[in-house]
């Protein structure tokens, strides 16, 4: 297994969030919006939101409208990285994790669901979702 390429960047949890960007630089909200709507990131499978252009939205998880009012950037980052810290029974995957999983498919083994840069883009976009 190629370990070097899949190594996760270190991050520090403080309180209920990760205050510092995983990549060290801010994400791009426009790219983040496109990522949230791409089915491969899986967000839109469970969440809905202010996305009039697609009807393929899920309702297993809260609507993303107003997310930027409800959570700080630091909280959003930790929720994407590892939502199970808030609720061990959550169905929301830990998007920045590559171990402790069962029977991961060959194409995905050792890799997080999202890269650090993708998480930063999505966090930047979610922070703009204000009522």
């Amino acid at each position: 297994m190629p370990t070097q390429a899949n190594k996760l960047l270190p991050y520090t949890i403080i309180g209920d969030g990760i205050p510092v960007s995983l990549t060290g630089s801010p994400g791009d909200a426009a790219r983040g919006r496109a990522l949230v709507l791409a089915r491969t990131t899986t967000c839109i499978l469970c969440h809905s939101g202010p996305f009039p252009e697609t009807r393929f939205q899920g309702d297993l998880a809260p609507d993303l409208t107003g997310t930027g009012n409800r959570w700080s950037v630091s909280q959003l980052r930790l929720r994407l990285v590892d939502a199970s810290r808030f609720n061990p029974d959550t169905i929301m995957p830990s998007y920045y994790r590559n171990d402790g999983l069962v029977r991961v498919g060959r194409n995905f083994a050792g890799k997080p669901i999202l890269s650090a840069a993708e998480i930063e883009d999505i966090v930047a976009f979610l922070a703009t979702l204000r009522d």
């Binding site: 297993l60 169905i91 991961v104």
Partner: peptide
């Protein structure tokens, strides 16, 4: 049993949702 990169079990969708 939860499985895969998305770490979901059959029951998470088909019993609970």
């Amino acid at each position: 049993q939860r499985a895969g990169q998305l770490n979901l079990a059959c029951t998470n969708c088909h019993d609970d949702n």
